[in-house]
Design a protein around this nucleic acid. Structure first.
Lengths: 208, 208
DNA sequence: GTAAAGATACCTTCGTGTATGTATATAAAC
DNA sequence: GTTTATATACATACACGAAGGTATCTTTAC
């Protein structure tokens, strides 16, 4: 219809984002049609164009949701500068992975961004933001390892840069596997254990 | 034209696959048009339909090339049952990564399969084969770790299953990062070093 | 009244599938 | 060794739907 109250308008907007989440997930971003998304949300393409302009706008708005979650993760990593860095990282990561595992919405979002979209030229703005978010996480990890090194808790075999790169690749690899769906492991279980296993490798060995 | 010799026909087939490689890479599988691919190869859509039936057929034929490379990797892992397993794995992986890094074609293929295509329902056959190839690699890794365990060379902290999962996730994560293009590391350098770093973590520690 | 919030209608572009045309390699027949 | 027949290897043309953009209504909050 027309001009609902501002709150109602925001509800339609959210409904559209939710719909996009579902449709993108099972049809892929490229093959999903705006009409399908609109009808899934109970309205028409008019609403989509009004709120998001075009398909890329819709995608970016959806992606924004995930960026926020990554920012949260980053803040968590930097939150407690006093705590032993390696243990603090282990706990932050455990928390994040557990939350992800228990929140189907986050999982859908991540699946879309990692496995249901083709990052080609036209997606440049999306790709850029994604890069920046990843770089920020990596920087936080590196800083944590640096603090560990300053405290004499990091093995000389693992310079902070490399350790951060390793850890990010490891988690990314696990996530990809997990998102594929037929994983024979859980995030809170095996993956967290693997992360802790690596972190204990990077710690200075107690002299026995 | 018409009825060329069998060799010429094979040449067009290869040309089409090469063209698909390029067009899929920079337009994404979903947005790439058969016409664009055909013209890139110097022929028309007729040839595409003749050789591959439809777009999915073309994609699968292209994917086949990558599957063959994965099979090669798997055979390499199983090749030398007498050698010390951990070292043999390190060398096999080093070889494979080095080859990948020096062969732009393999890189294009991998990029397409990991970052330029949306694995939705219609892609089921492609997805299935990909899963199987991955599972085969993982089984080979697991077997190698098992042999290491039997020889008393594997730390008790790392059961073969977990070690294999870890290693595959790690490499997969690195590959994804590397394929993104602006990686600040090399496969033959940092990634191989990381793999060796992990493998030495899984080895029984020399009693000091 | 006017601008926000959408619905509807229309147009255009693009891509695919399919059908059909056509020339030639190649094998069989004689 | 020709001729003939047929399957091969494409090219061309057409029909069709799907999807997106835009422009124009319509309603209602303020």
């Amino acid at each position: 219809m027309a001009r609902r109250t501002k709150q109602e308008a925001d509800e339609t907007r959210e409904a559209l984002l939710d719909a996009a989440e579902h449709v993108f997930l099972d049809r892929g971003v490229a093959r999903a049609s705006l009409d399908e998304i609109a009808r899934f949300a109970g309205c028409t393409r008019g609403a989509v164009h009004w709120h998001f302009g075009d398909k890329l706008g819709l995608f970016l708005a959806l992606d924004e949701r995930l960026i926020l979650l990554q920012d949260e993760m980053k803040r968590r990593l930097c939150s407690d500068e006093a705590a032993p860095p390696l243990e603090h990282m282990a706990e932050s990561i455990t928390t994040a992975l557990t939350e992800l595992e228990n929140d189907p919405r986050r999982r859908r979002l991540l699946t879309i961004m990692l496995q249901r979209c083709e990052y080609v030229a036209e997606m440049a703005p999306a790709l850029l933001r994604r890069r920046q978010a990843d770089a920020a996480i990596r920087a936080s990890l590196r800083d944590s390892f640096r603090r560990a090194a300053e405290r004499g808790e990091l093995s000389a075999d693992w310079p902070p840069e490399r350790a951060a790169l390793f850890l990010q690749a490891l988690i990314g690899g696990f996530l990809n596997e997990w998102l594929r769906g037929e994983a024979d492991f859980t995030l809170a279980g095996e993956v967290c254990a693997a992360v802790r296993g690596f972190l204990s490798c990077t710690a200075v060995k107690p002299v026995s």
